[in-house]
């Protein structure tokens, strides 16, 4: 889209203010959500604790389906935070976008490929780290030539396609959703009241669908992260 972003160069690094601010807002929202749900932890759970435990059970289910032998419990926290962070990030831009003087400051952080690539990188780095930790570096390298050696180039290529598909799937879905929201918004403004009235239900429908897509993509991202990690931790 034609959004303009403010950039800050600091210590030779380039910061996109919109990305960072949105990610920060999403992280704070996740923390507020989880913090407020975990105030009274008791043996007999209250409403808030039930919600929190339901979410934990949900992400634990994702982890367990990727690690059927139950060895994935150390990734439960990662899956939980990842899922909530991506979910809140996806919904953030649907709820509000802040533009000041034509510069976007708050939006869905996942509408930017850099953000999704960072998250995918975290997942894949975890996968490689735990693979090396489990097998040792030699076996980790030889795992690329499994099950048969001529698959080596395909396995190497797969690492990159995994990274790209994991990050760009999330980015594409959320970005397309917001592009379409913006398009419907411009349609609403194009012919005055008539188009406005027509566009409102369409916008509502697409917003609801985007909430759905955001949830699905958060689920898909978390599931695939866990699958990649578990695949790196077994000999094929």
């Amino acid at each position: 889209m034609d959004d303009k972003y403010k950039f800050i160069d600091f210590l030779g690094l380039r910061f996109n203010v919109a990305n960072d601010l949105s990610a920060l807002v999403a992280a704070i929202l996740v923390f507020i959500l989880v913090f407020s749900l975990s105030r009274k932890i008791t043996m007999k759970p209250g409403k808030a604790q039930n919600v929190l435990e339901w979410m934990i059970d949900f992400t634990d289910g994702i982890v367990k389906s990727a690690f059927p032998d139950g060895s994935g419990s150390r990734f439960s926290l990662y899956a939980f935070v990842l899922f909530l962070f991506i979910f809140v990030s996806n919904q953030l831009g649907l709820i509000f976008q802040i533009k000041v003087d034509g510069f976007t400051y708050i939006k869905s952080p996942t509408t930017n490929p850099i953000v999704t690539m960072s998250l995918a990188l975290v997942s894949l780095m975890l996968a490689h780290y735990y693979s090396v930790k489990k097998f040792g570096f030699g076996t980790y390298l030889s795992n690329y030539a499994r099950p048969v050696s001529f698959l080596l180039p395909i396995n190497l290529l797969e690492e990159f396609t995994n990274f790209l598909t994991l990050s760009l799937r999330l980015y594409g879905n959320i970005f397309a959703g917001e592009v379409l929201l913006a398009l419907i918004g411009t349609v609403a403004k194009s012919f005055g009241l008539v188009s406005f009235v027509i566009a409102i239900p369409v916008e509502m429908i697409w917003q609801g669908f985007s909430v759905f897509i955001g949830a699905i993509q958060a689920y898909v991202f978390t599931t695939l992260s866990m699958v990649y990690i578990s695949r790196k931790m077994e000999k094929e």
Partner: peptide
């Protein structure tokens, strides 16, 4: 945009730590 990556990474790690500690 390495800065963004670093920022996301650090904020994600901090978020994980905070969530782990508080909830």
């Amino acid at each position: 945009a390495l800065g963004d990556m670093l920022f996301i990474l650090i904020s994600f790690i901090l978020l994980s730590l905070a969530v782990k500690h508080y909830a």
